[in-house]
Deep mutational scan, measured.
Amino acid sequence: EEWMVEKALMVRTGLGARQIESYRQGAWIEGVHFKRVSPSGESTLRGTTWYNYPEINKFIR
């Protein structure tokens, strides 16, 4: 699984929702560690946020 939603990321990493938000707003790079995608497939600020687990795992190492 490369891309996953927040709940799956929480299960895989043990991070809480606030921790994920903090990383997203600070250290993680949009387009690398996470992306927002609307149902139409376009990038957007209001779409579902998807997280790239392999890239996040590399960051944590």
Rank of each mutant, 00 (worst) to 15 (best):
E1G: 10
E1R: 06
E2F: 08
E2Y: 08
W3D: 01
W3A: 01
W3V: 00
W3L: 00
W3F: 02
W3Y: 02
W3S: 00
V5Q: 14
V5I: 10
V5P: 12
V5C: 10
V5N: 15
E6A: 09
E6F: 10
E6L: 15
K7L: 11
K7N: 09
K7Q: 12
K7S: 15
A8N: 09
A8Y: 08
A8R: 08
A8P: 04
A8W: 11
A8S: 08
L9C: 03
L9E: 01
L9K: 00
M10L: 05
M10H: 04
M10A: 07
M10T: 07
M10K: 06
V11W: 10
V11P: 03
V11S: 11
R12K: 12
R12Q: 07
T13C: 06
T13E: 02
T13W: 03
G14S: 05
G14V: 02
G14L: 04
G14H: 05
L15G: 00
L15Y: 04
G16S: 15
A17P: 11
R18C: 13
Q19A: 08
I20L: 06
I20M: 04
I20A: 01
I20T: 02
I20F: 03
I20D: 01
E21C: 08
E21G: 05
E21T: 06
S22V: 11
S22K: 13
Y23T: 01
Y23L: 10
Y23H: 05
Y23D: 02
Y23Q: 03
Y23G: 03
R24A: 06
R24D: 01
R24H: 05
Q25T: 11
Q25A: 10
G26R: 08
G26F: 13
A27W: 09
A27S: 10
A27D: 09
A27Q: 11
W28K: 00
E30N: 05
E30D: 07
G31H: 05
G31V: 04
G31Q: 04
G31D: 05
V32H: 05
V32I: 13
H33D: 01
H33K: 00
H33S: 00
F34Q: 01
F34H: 03
K35I: 12
R36F: 15
R36L: 15
V37F: 08
V37M: 11
V37S: 09
V37L: 09
V37G: 09
S38W: 11
P39N: 10
P39E: 13
P39F: 10
S40Y: 10
G41Y: 07
G41F: 08
G41K: 08
G41I: 08
E42S: 12
E42F: 07
S43I: 09
S43W: 05
T44I: 08
T44L: 10
L45H: 12
L45K: 08
L45V: 12
L45T: 12
R46I: 14
R46H: 14
R46A: 15
G47C: 12
T48S: 07
T48E: 15
T49P: 05
T49R: 04
T49Q: 04
T49M: 14
W50Y: 14
W50V: 13
Y51A: 00
N52M: 02
N52L: 03
N52P: 01
N52D: 02
Y53L: 13
Y53C: 04
Y53G: 04
Y53R: 02
P54Q: 10
P54L: 09
P54G: 07
P54W: 09
P54V: 14
E55K: 05
I56D: 01
N57G: 06
N57W: 13
K58D: 07
K58V: 06
F59K: 03
F59S: 04
F59R: 02
I60T: 04
R61Q: 15
R61Y: 10
R61W: 09
R61C: 11
R61V: 14
R61F: 09
